[in-house]
Nucleic acid binder design. Structure first.
Length: 338
DNA sequence: TCAGGGTGTATGTAACGCCT
DNA sequence: AGGCGTTACATACACCCTGA
């Protein structure tokens, strides 16, 4: 059976197609269409099982009512929660979300931006991989609505929403010092992204504030492209080579999970032999005995703010979109590991 | 009485971007 | 050039009211 179009409804109801359009878009009042006609049109449309052709709407309006979300890895609970909240939030504004992962690979990120552009997304929410500056810059130049999440690009002037990484790490470090830990190792990832630099800065700043001399041997940078086992070995080696360590600070949750495996392998006890704290919370941290202290990002607040900023841009009629930079505060969740 | 304007209820049509 | 489905915008038309 041929799909029912607005024209068919108009014919069946004995009105013009534009009248059908007004009625179904709730503009009957505004267009001074009589209640009789309005009711008849609605009735006919329902009986015919009419639903608007989304392609035609996009054709006419130039809007797809779709947002593109590019995250690092949708498999990571942080990004999964982010994506879900963004989806819910976007729905409030009548938008759908298409999401995809860069795996922190710039060329994949570039492809994803192209793919989303071809699908005529109205706006982009991006956690940029390293070296994506040019691609993002291009979107900005085309005046496309863009909001970066979780990290930003110092060289590109574009709206972003993230947590105050340095401050959050300082808070975590202060907690460790409070509990009497002095020899604190830092495990991060060898990735050229700003939020990792900021987290490391937080660590370094906290040490110098305590007047502790920096020991580079207890800062471990794991290659991003690590094999799991290799990373577990690296962390185990860090612990073996530095028996003075009494605490480990993990810069992200997936590193902490690898670290737990290393600690387990060495049969060390948490927190007696080694205390553990992780940036980014994870379900496992609530459960894994004795519970892992973590720094929880306000994921929902980030998602809401990012969508709000993007919507503002999408609805803006300015010829040049303005940029807004938002920094939110993370929360320390103290559990048994510290 | 009738021109002129206001109001209510519509209709007509161009344009959107891409493909034949 | 014409077609797809839709909507924004322009326009048409009937009717009513007002004032000269």
């Amino acid at each position: 059976m041929k799909k029912v179009s607005i024209k068919d409804i108009a014919q069946m109801a004995g009105v013009a197609s534009s009248t059908v359009s007004f009625v179904l878009n709730g503009k009957a009042r505004k267009m001074r269409i009589s209640e009789t006609v309005e009711k008849r049109v609605i009735e006919v449309a329902r009986n015919a099982g009419y639903y608007p052709n989304q392609l035609a709407i996009s054709l006419r309006t130039g809007k797809s009512k779709t947002l593109g979300l590019i995250v690092e890895n949708i498999g990571n609970p942080f990004f999964a929660t982010l994506a879900k909240t963004i989806e819910e939030e976007a729905e409030q504004y009548g938008y759908r979300v298409v999401y995809c992962s860069t795996e922190n690979n710039a060329s994949k990120g570039k492809e994803l931006i192209n793919m989303l552009s071809q699908r005529q997304v109205d706006g982009y929410l991006i956690t940029p991989a390293p070296h994506m500056e040019d691609d993002i810059q291009q979107l900005v130049q085309l005046n496309r609505p863009v909001v970066l999440i979780d990290r930003y690009l110092p060289s590109v002037d574009v709206s972003h929403v993230l947590v105050n990484n340095t401050e959050a790490v300082s808070q975590g470090m202060a907690h460790l010092f409070d509990r009497g830990y002095k020899e604190i190792g830092f495990v991060t990832v060898d990735l050229d992204v700003i939020q990792m630099e900021e987290r490391l800065d937080g660590y370094l700043g906290a040490l110098s504030k305590q007047g502790i001399r920096l020991n580079k041997d207890i800062i471990l940078k794991i290659p991003y492209t690590h094999q799991r086992d290799e990373a577990v070995e690296l962390i185990a080696a860090l612990l073996k080579d530095n028996p003075q360590l009494d605490a480990l600070f993990f810069a992200t949750n997936y590193l902490a999970i690898l670290g737990l495996e290393s600690i387990n392998r060495l049969k060390m006890a948490i927190p007696q032999d080694i205390a553990v704290i992780s940036f980014d919370d994870h379900d496992i941290f609530r459960i894994y005995p004795p519970g892992i202290t973590s720094i929880q990002q306000p994921v929902e607040a980030i998602a809401k703010k990012a969508v709000a900023l993007l919507m503002e841009q999408c609805e803006s009629t300015e010829s040049k979109l303005s940029t807004t930079e938002v920094e939110l505060t993370a929360k320390l969740i103290v559990r048994g590991s510290t």
